[in-house]
């Protein structure tokens, strides 16, 4: 009987301890399967129908064109997470863009019209956002171009602690399926440009800089960026 009581008490204690941990600890949200994270209110530009070829098939490294009535993607982040990239300084691998200015990348205007696109030269190029200090990042959203029948190649999104991307570099997204950009083989799929852009969630990653690579598209050799948003909170 005593044994039974001890076992029951130990079991009850363990359950109680688990309950306390999962409801109050810093890992509480994860342990509860995302509780504590709330959907970020993403502001998508107006949808434009894309004419796509007949019988367009998906494959393991390229997504098919999404349906016209596709639901907007969701990004979960802690309550209070904001676009920490807004109005932050931008640099790129192309000092003299073909048109547009670096500041347009984080100016909040994502209409995708001619005058809101930053166009960088041919081949592999990158843009980089200085978050002005370490932040806990929960997701990146990128719009390369207005909705169009085009796939950008070798889209790679990385974060790091230093502007030269030497210290603590982490890759959040990589669609370079053949390592043609030399940043390693990626497991993500190339996608068609839509008004939803690409939402890239990540799990509370602390970094001070965000860098996005691309290497032209199926349409031309240039690299375009309409807007990049980074959702997060100041580093704890």
């Amino acid at each position: 009987m005593l044994r039974f009581c001890v076992l029951a008490a130990a079991l009850a204690g363990a359950v109680a301890a688990c309950l306390v941990c999962t409801t109050t600890g810093p890992w509480a949200a994860e342990a509860r399967g995302g509780q504590g994270l709330v959907p970020v209110k993403l502001d998508f530009p107006k949808a434009i129908p894309i004419p796509s070829p007949k019988n367009f098939r998906p494959n393991e490294h390229q997504e098919p064109p999404p349906p016209a009535d596709a639901r907007p993607p969701q990004l979960l982040a802690p309550d209070g997470a904001t676009n920490i990239a807004l109005k932050k300084p931008v640099t790129s691998s192309d000092d003299s863009p073909i048109h547009g200015e670096h500041a347009q990348l984080t100016d909040g205007d994502k209409r995708g019209t001619e005058d809101t696109v930053l166009e960088l030269g041919p081949g592999r190029q990158w843009v980089q956002i200085d978050l002005k200090g370490k932040h806990n990042i929960h997701g990146v959203v990128v719009w390369h171009f207005r909705p169009a029948l085009r796939y950008y190649h070798d889209v790679v999104v990385q974060v790091a602690d230093d502007p030269d991307f030497i210290a603590n570099v982490r890759t959040l997204f990589n669609s370079d399926y053949d390592n043609s950009s030399g940043l390693g083989i990626g497991k993500d799929r190339e996608y068609m440009e839509t008004h939803h852009g690409r939402v890239i969630p990540c799990k509370d990653i602390a970094a001070a800089y965000v860098r996005l690579y691309s290497r032209g598209s199926t349409e031309n050799d240039m690299n375009h960026y309409v807007e990049v948003e980074v959702y997060g909170t100041p580093a704890r």
């Binding site: 494959n59 190339e190 031309n220």
Partner: peptide, 8 residues
Amino acid sequence: AYFTEIRG
């Protein structure tokens, strides 16, 4: 079996 890619 094939691997497929898309080109312009």
